[in-house]
Design a protein around this nucleic acid. Structure first.
Length: 358
DNA sequence: TAGGCCATCTGGTCCT
DNA sequence: AGGACCAGATGGCCTA
């Protein structure tokens, strides 16, 4: 049940994508925002009725010096013998914590709480960054933490599969992979982002996603020149969908690698990562592979990453970005994606955004 | 009202 | 000693 109800008590500046701040950075008490300090004070009164919760540490240290003199008296009160005259406590006598020491412990506890809050805020900021680079990002309907992590794992796995296979994935199978292990609401969300009929998804008791009908084929959403001509007759996809809902699967030749059905057949993110050699490691910073983001503010998304990546239907047409890891090389270096600057409008992508907007 | 999700507090452990 | 990290506990908010 993703929601946007909770508000951070501490405003976090949007961290640069893939450049998270160190968690639990030093958070000295005196730099606490006013509202946070107030919050701490409120909690103090709530939990322990601490009258001087906002006392500064140096004040407390002063107080501790003063109370040091009282320690002897404190110790005298300690270690009273029981009815049999035997001391209740054995071993070295422990000093009863002085009042000043207690205060100092409380202050340290508050500082630790503030650091912990800060650390968790950093963690949440990182999670928010992750939400933005996995499919179906929405400001209004946020994925829960656990679902974000699951979807990210599936996404990485699916992209790795794409890279390792070096051929064009089937949209159906791609979404199938994305939805593995996700809750039904999240599956519906992903399906909604993809403009797939959620009824096509059937989550079995193992949490695996199955399909009862074939959603619009990938090629219908990403038409490419000459695709119809290259479609082998009678070639159907692995989706096992109904014939009436699916176009005939078009065999796709890309750089010598045939794009065929069953791309993710029997594949599961749980089964370990696909084998990757050399430069074909999972892309860490390439997002929007299928431009499936569900953005409320496209301009913000544009700022999040300097590059977008679009599936390129036409082999060889890609104008790889200067920073592309696949840049250079001969025909074998061709890759089914092309990069474009996020700031530059890309018509097909804009169309896709429209298509994926509910 | 139960359950899910979340933020926060807290004490323990490990490391520097 | 102090900070980072972690996990359990707790309470609030929201939805089905």
């Amino acid at each position: 049940m993703p929601d946007d109800r909770k508000m951070l008590t501490l405003p976090i500046d949007e961290p640069a994508m893939m450049c998270e701040p160190r968690f639990g950075a030093n958070y000295p008490r005196e730099t606490l925002p006013e509202d946070l300090a107030r919050d701490i004070g409120r909690r103090d009164s709530m939990h322990e009725d601490m009258s001087n919760s906002d006392m500064r540490e140096d004040d407390l240290l002063e107080d501790e010096d003063l109370s040091e003199r009282e320690e002897d008296e404190d110790e005298r009160e300690e270690d009273e013998p029981d009815a049999n005259g035997i001391s209740k406590t054995r071993g070295p006598r422990r000093k009863k914590p002085s009042k000043g020491r207690n205060e100092r412990v409380k202050v340290r506890r508050h500082e630790a709480n503030a650091r912990e809050r800060s650390r968790m805020h950093g963690l949440n900021a990182a999670l928010e960054s992750l939400r933005k680079v996995v499919p179906c990002y929405s400001k209004t309907q946020k994925l829960s933490k656990i679902e974000t992590l699951r979807l990210a794992k599936n996404y990485i796995w699916a992209l790795s599969e794409t890279l390792s296979a070096g051929k064009r994935p089937d949209l159906l199978a791609f979404v199938q992979t994305l939805c593995k292990g996700l809750s039904q609401p999240t599956t519906n969300l992903v399906a909604g982002c993809l403009q797939l009929n959620a009824r096509n998804f059937l989550t079995d008791h193992n949490g695996d996603v199955m399909f009862s009908a074939r959603p619009p084929p990938y090629d219908s959403m990403y038409p490419y020149p000459g695709s119809e001509a290259s479609a082998p007759p009678g070639h159907s996809s692995s989706g096992g969908g109904t014939a009436d809902s699916a176009k005939p699967f078009r065999h796709y030749n890309y750089g010598g690698a045939a794009y065929d059905a069953g791309y993710y057949e029997n594949a599961s993110p749980e089964g370990g990562s696909p084998h990757l050699d050399g430069p074909l490691s999972p892309p860490m910073n390439f997002n929007g592979i299928f431009s499936l983001k569900h953005h409320d503010d496209a301009s913000e998304y544009s700022k999040s990453s300097p590059y977008g990546m679009r599936y390129c239907g036409a082999p060889g047409r890609a104008a790889l970005g200067q920073n592309s890891m696949y840049r250079g090389g001969g025909p074998e270096a061709r890759f089914p994606y092309d990069l474009h600057l996020r700031g530059q409008p890309y018509q097909p992508q804009a169309e896709m955004h429209g298509a994926f907007h509910n």
